[in-house]
Design a protein around this nucleic acid. Structure first.
Lengths: 167, 167
DNA sequence: TTGGAATGTCAACAAGGCTGACATAAAATC
DNA sequence: GATTTTATGTCAGCCTTGTTGACATTCCAA
């Protein structure tokens, strides 16, 4: 092998269709693992992933508006509304009319909602922690870099927002 | 900073709940990007992600049985059957009765099916290639390591199988 | 040869996406 | 003040894709 071009051959090595396919399948199988633990917990509460996502981001941004949540989750208001309604009815989420703008509803987790959120995120963090430990610190940096590069620009904006506030 | 304990402090640094939460949200947003391009193509054909997954793995393992596919995809046979039926009706997949065991159906892509698969995987590879290029070779290694560690053991077995045959 | 296991199909239901239409209230604008 | 725009909620209905249950076919082993 001619190693004179070093950097160049190395940066092409992992771009074969085979290597890319492995990355694609790794995403598929890993995402299943990623959601498996919360899914089991949600089953007990007769909730689904949609509820998990709502609870997660209401916890991340307490007092967020419905519109804000819609932008983050990328679903229609009808779809989100169905989920929010059940969460509110069950006393996991509180919806407060805005003070400045009374059209807006600000969303908060109740204590019960926060408890479910902790239960879900603890399970998911546990899996993430185990994977991080197994792969090592340098792998984690690379993992995050590739994921961020894979996002759509809009999603990346939401991600960066979430990154700043609190981390 | 005391660098004497180097390895130890470094391997704890990324295990804070904040760091783990960032990893969790990165997975969420990145997976949306990961599926966005194929989703747009599938819309034109009135298909969904389930069709994509079936076509992908039939292409990967030509002649695979329905049962085999079930284990990989992790859904019920009834759910998969509905997807397969439409793909067969539309002439994208061919189902051949097994020669040794006539209960089994062996699945193959037709030329039209292979064309759709190429269209889908090209779009997905393009996104993966761009992300890999942006993140660099070392990041890619880490990315793959973390994803593999995140899988359930059963899924990891399927992934490794897929890794060997062809890669 | 008969009964159990494996495989695949049909029917029906639920979750959670979607669109469209519409109501309400508040804010913004003319 | 009247009108328009914005934010939210709701109803109806559709689609995809999960689920269970019931059933037919095929194979194999007792």
């Amino acid at each position: 092998m001619a190693e004179g071009g070093g950097q160049s051959s190395e940066s092409l090595l992992f771009l074969t269709d085979e290597q890319l396919r492995k990355g694609i399948e790794a995403m598929f199988f890993a995402y299943r693992g990623f959601t498996a633990d919360p899914d089991r917990i949600l089953e007990d509460h007769a909730y689904g992933r949609a509820h998990h996502r709502a609870v997660h981001f209401i916890n991340r941004f307490p007092g967020t508006t419905v519109n804000n949540l819609l932008a983050i989750l990328g679903v229609t208001k009808q779809s989100l509304n169905r989920v929010l309604r059940s969460l509110i009815e069950d006393g996991l989420v509180e919806s407060r009319v805005g003070t400045r703008d009374k059209r807006e509803r600000h969303l908060f987790l109740t204590e019960a909602g926060a408890a479910l959120e902790r239960s879900l995120s603890e399970a998911q963090r546990k899996r993430m922690r185990t994977a991080y430990r197994a792969a090592g610190p340098e792998a984690v940096v690379g993992f995050r870099q590739v994921l961020e590069a894979m996002m759509d620009p809009e999603m990346r904006a939401h991600f960066d927002e979430a990154k700043d506030s609190g981390g």
